[in-house]
């Protein structure tokens, strides 16, 4: 188990990390950054919680529970942005306002449809990273528990699992 210090630090770090990731996401149009790197930063922050608190606690985070849904929503958003122009007869991925036109700015953020696409990518990356690592962690915990139970039945002594638990 991790120390109190690590856990507190990880908890404090979560919100700043999420904020930085959103920053990287929105400034991707005038500066370095995009949905993919933002997604990786955010999922690192979330996975850090898992490292600090263990798999069971990790599963209780709402961000982790809805990770698969985030992947679907992100993919759907990205696809919708890609294919919607086809409805009006334009080529796929055509963005609005089109290249050359001026867009409304809000700080570094430009209000153009590719931002939506990037938000979709952001969601896919978070959902994939958190979801896949969460699944592996869950499986590992389940396996350890099964093994403990198996060892117990094999040895037939009630004291064995506790002893194993101590050694780990």
């Amino acid at each position: 188990m991790t120390t109190e210090m690590t856990r507190t630090t990880c908890r404090i770090l979560l919100l700043p990390i999420l904020m930085i990731s959103v920053g990287v996401l929105v400034k991707g149009y005038a500066d370095i950054g995009d949905g993919f790197s933002a997604g990786v930063i955010a999922s690192l922050g979330i996975i850090l919680q898992g490292v600090a608190f263990g798999a069971e606690e990790f599963d209780r985070l709402p961000l982790v529970r809805y990770a698969p849904l985030a992947t679907f929503a992100g993919l759907f958003l990205a696809l919708a942005v890609a294919f919607l122009p086809v409805v009006s007869g334009d080529p796929i991925f055509l963005h609005h306002p089109v290249a050359g036109d001026s867009a409304t700015h809000f700080g570094a953020l430009e209000f153009i449809t590719p931002v939506l696409f990037d938000i979709g990518v952001f969601l896919i990356v978070i959902g994939f990273c958190v979801g896949s690592i969460g699944a592996v962690a869950r499986e590992t915990v389940r396996r350890e528990r099964d093994r403990g139970a198996q060892a117990e039945t094999r040895r037939g002594s009630p004291g064995a699992p506790a002893e194993r638990g101590d050694r780990r």
């Binding site: 991790t2 898992g50 780990r168």
Partner: peptide, 13 residues
């Protein structure tokens, strides 16, 4: 393998 894992690992997350 159980013994090895137990010997190798002190803690886990």
């Amino acid at each position: 393998q159980d013994r090895e894992i137990a010997a190798r690992q002190g803690g886990r997350w």
